[in-house]
Nucleic acid binder design. Structure first.
Length: 471
RNA sequence: GGAGAGGUGGCCGAGUGGUUUAAGGCGAUGGUCUUGAAAACCAUUGUACGGUUUUCCGUACCGCAGGUUCGAAUCCUGUCCUCUCCGCCA
């Protein structure tokens, strides 16, 4: 979520930034937000002033009722006079009459009960008005909040401005492209032939876009996960094991909701969802907490399955395991100060590249342009591995700095050193890495003419094999 | 899954409808005293929003959401979580 104060103070600048995203709907929401914000503050100020008057009158009422030193005749007189003052909207006079600080003329013809009934009726009228005010304010605030939740993050000034992913800037590839003396096969042929991927049985169990890994396939995935986790751990990330189900609020906190509501699986009749990425859980680890600057940066790494319904991608990448409903991913995540977050983004992206290099698969880094940043990133790099069988670059990692966009939603703050004024942390996420596409790249890059697959050196200790061949 | 008991500030804990501050303690920070420290004493103490501007003032927050009431930490309903016991279970 953006800072409402920023939108209020620099509306034109914010709109310029949003314009870089080529998101017309978001632009319109900024105007709506500005309008609602003015309305909201006007009604709040007015209603809160009235509430202050009522609170004070009610305290005086308590005092009048409970004053044991005052006899009933005087109480009746004061109640009556205060009710009259309230009819004239003279709150100060009413308060003074009730709390005993103003003189009152006794009138013994008054019934205490009736006088108090009048006073209560007068107070109720004030209360009704306040209730209306708060109800209206709440209505406006809900609408304001809804608009804020749909506004994407602003791009970092260093991000180049283009509309679509075709303009993403690719850095020169690293690693060696292999020259094949035969036609390289796609993984959806290699996997079943080796007996390590079983598409049919995956579909039988759970439907399309589900698959089964068997034997060396299952073990290869497990080896990759261990390798990824160990690599991140040596870079200083704390390994965490997380729930694979989270509350809806966590998805709002990580800025998945409301925009991507239909990409996640929900448990029937429950406010619980299967995580689409570990990022959702880690973002909320320190939800509603105020950290100390000395604790930052906090670096976490977690392996979780990721569940994605992929409704929006129906018909795309239907062959193989490139786009599936359930896959394994190791996620790196950092909570940092605003001053260091962009340096940390470079370092973290470097770690993702190190993993690719370690696996000896050709890869490249993409600098993502403004129009392709997605909803919550201020700046983003993708890492792609080359897959000769499908003849395409496969996205195996995505590293983003969301600045305070997620932190503001999840309320993750810190005290800067020597200060007691809270600030939002910056949060960064980066895959390191996701398994299915890495397995694709390994199979397709390392396939031999006889259909066997050589295992990268770094994985051999994890897998306990140098080659996977037809058994 | 069933029954019961609970949820109050950074922590412990009092508070069962009002009589202007959520008592008290611990911790933390600052100060006095001291050669220094400890002890003692004094003071301060959260978050958000709004109005002011360098100081205040107001509103909200006692798990969360509703409700009753002139007035709710306190009463009612729902919900989440924790603990105890029972059942089931890797």
């Amino acid at each position: 979520m953006l800072d409402i104060a920023l939108i209020r103070e620099k509306p034109d600048w914010v709109k310029e930034q949003i314009a870089k995203l080529y998101d017309e709907a978001a632009l319109a929401r900024i105007d709506k937000v500005l309008e609602l914000d003015v309305e909201r503050r006007a009604i709040r100020t007015k209603t809160e002033t009235a509430q202050a008057a009522r609170n004070s009158l009610n305290r005086s009422m308590g005092k009048l009722r409970g004053d044991k030193a005052m006899d009933d005749g005087e109480k009746a007189a004061r109640a009556h006079a205060a009710a009259c003052a309230l009819q004239r909207q003279d709150f100060d006079a009413a308060r003074a009459l009730m709390d005993g600080s103003a003189p009152v003329k006794r009138d013994d013809s008054l019934q205490a009960g009736a006088a108090f009934d009048d006073l209560i009726a007068a107070l109720r009228q004030i209360g009704d008005k306040i209730d209306d005010g708060f109800a209206k304010a709440k209505e406006i605030e809900i609408e304001l909040e809804d608009n804020m939740l749909w506004i994407p993050n602003l791009p970092h000034h260093g991000v180049s401005v283009h509309e679509s992913e075709e303009s993403n800037k690719a850095h020169p590839p690293k690693g060696e492209f292999r020259e094949f003396d035969f036609e390289p096969k796609p993984h959806w042929e290699l996997g079943p032939a080796l007996g390590i991927i079983d598409f049919e049985r995956g579909v039988k169990l759970a439907g399309s876009r589900f698959f089964v890994l068997k034997g060396w396939g299952a073990r290869l995935q497990r080896a990759l996960i261990s390798f990824f986790l160990d690599t991140a751990r040596t870079k200083g990330f704390d390994e965490v094991y997380l729930p694979y189900l989270v509350y809806g609020d966590m998805l709002y906190g990580a800025a998945q909701f409301p925009k991507f509501q239909d990409t996640v699986y929900q448990l029937e009749g429950e406010d619980r969802f299967l995580v689409p990425t570990a990022e959702v859980a880690i973002t909320n680890l320190h939800r509603d907490e105020i950290l100390e600057e000395a604790d930052l940066p906090l670096s976490y790494v977690a392996h979780t399955p990721c569940f994605r319904s992929e409704k929006a991608s129906a018909g795309r990448d239907v062959r193989g395991i490139k786009r599936v409903h359930q896959f394994e991913k190791v996620e790196m995540y950092k909570f940092t100060t605003p001053e260091t977050s962009y340096d940390e983004l470079e370092t973290m992206t470097g770690y993702a590249e190190d993993i690719c290099a370690g696996l000896e698969i050709p890869f490249r880094r993409l600098e993502i342009v403004s129009g392709d940043l997605g909803f919550s990133a201020s700046k983003k790099y993708d890492i792609e591995m080359w897959s000769p069988g499908c003849a395409e670059w496969l996205e195996v990692s995505s590293c983003s700095n969301t600045e305070a966009f997620q932190a503001r939603r999840a309320m993750v703050r810190y005290y800067p050193a020597g200060s007691r004024k809270t600030q939002f942390v910056h949060t960064l996420n980066g895959s390191g890495l996701a398994t299915p596409r890495v397995m694709i790249a390994i199979m397709e890059n390392n396939q031999q003419a006889d259909g066997s697959v050589l295992i990268p050196q770094v994985l051999r200790p994890y897998l306990g094999a140098e080659v996977i061949s037809v058994s």
